[in-house]
């Protein structure tokens, strides 16, 4: 007996085909933007010698976090990366993360605002996010290839899809959590929707939104590594190559590099997000 097989996979493939042929203008635009962005960023990051960049990163980490410890960790960690001769791949990874995060934030915050302000949007977006977050990360790599081929652009596309949910969710949550009486006060004084959003809701939701961006950065970092499988360069590429060549030592060195970047980004972002809260 043969049971009718619901053609979910077929439908998705057909969908992807449809988008590949009919949305080429969008994929081309996305391609151009990311390729250019990565090129410029890498150029900027590789313009100065590593020791100068290490000092800049250290200064930046200290300035943003206002903590000596984080500055010191940055100094030692980045020096170690340089010493392990992983400087180039690390800069590649950082530019991928920066581009992917910028895109995720640019997409995530407006969608988060939208879903906080419209119940209909909320009802549609939330289940989609649930699915997106439970889907194994690798799966996103598959559509990336037909859209953008192998390489950095496809990697960024997959990374953005993978890392955008927390940004949407926490932006939405942050706005919903603004105490009712503050929204009432804004209303009572005749604020328009936009005034209410920009003068009251977003500033009060800022800490939560920053936490969302932090999560987005962390997810972007992990995905950028996985995306090495479809040809993204960087530390993930080093790990991937090490796996293929069974070079355990080299693989772990690249892994340590990823951990160092993750810790620096996380600590700095936490301070940026939390520091403002103390003022309030």
């Amino acid at each position: 007996m043969t049971v009718y097989r619901i053609p979910i996979g077929d439908a998705i493939e057909a969908g992807i085909d449809f988008f590949v042929t009919h949305l080429s203008f969008a994929t081309i635009a996305f391609s151009k933007f990311t390729t250019k962005g990565i090129a410029y960023l890498s150029e900027i990051l590789m313009f100065l010698p590593p020791w100068a960049m290490i000092l800049i990163f250290t200064g930046l980490a200290w300035f943003l976090s206002k903590k000596w410890g984080i500055g010191l960790f940055t100094l030692i960690g980045m020096s170690l990366i340089w010493n392990m001769q992983l400087w180039g791949p690390t800069m590649d990874t950082i530019s991928l993360i920066i581009i992917a995060t910028l895109l995720s934030v640019a997409i995530g915050i407006p969608l988060g605002i939208f879903s906080a302000l419209s119940t209909t949007a909320y009802r549609i977006i939330t289940p989609v996010l649930d699915v997106m977050q439970t889907m194994p990360a690798f799966v996103y790599l598959i559509p990336a290839i037909p859209f953008f081929g192998l390489g950095a652009v496809g990697a960024i596309f997959a990374t953005v899809i993978f890392s955008v949910p927390p940004c949407i969710r926490l932006t939405c949550l942050g706005i919903q959590q603004v105490p009712r009486e503050m929204v009432e006060a804004a209303d009572a004084f005749g604020s328009s929707k936009a005034q209410k959003l920009f003068k009251v809701q977003l500033p009060i939701a800022k800490t939560t939104i920053m936490a969302g961006i932090n999560q987005t950065i962390m997810l972007a970092l992990s995905m950028v590594v996985i995306a090495a499988m479809i040809g993204a360069k960087g530390l993930g590429g080093e790990v991937w190559r090490a796996i293929q060549r069974l070079e355990a030592g080299r693989g772990f060195e690249a892994g340590i590099g990823i951990v160092i970047i993750a810790i620096i980004l996380d600590r700095v972002m936490q301070q940026v997000a939390g520091g403002k809260k103390q003022q309030m």
Binding site: P179, E181, M182, A185, D187, G190, P203
Partner: peptide, 17 residues
């Protein structure tokens, strides 16, 4: 509201930021 009302709230409802 803009033209007519000023309001003081029981629980202050100040903007923390």
């Amino acid at each position: 509201r803009l033209d007519h009302f000023g309001m003081v709230f029981q629980n202050f409802a100040l903007f923390p930021h």
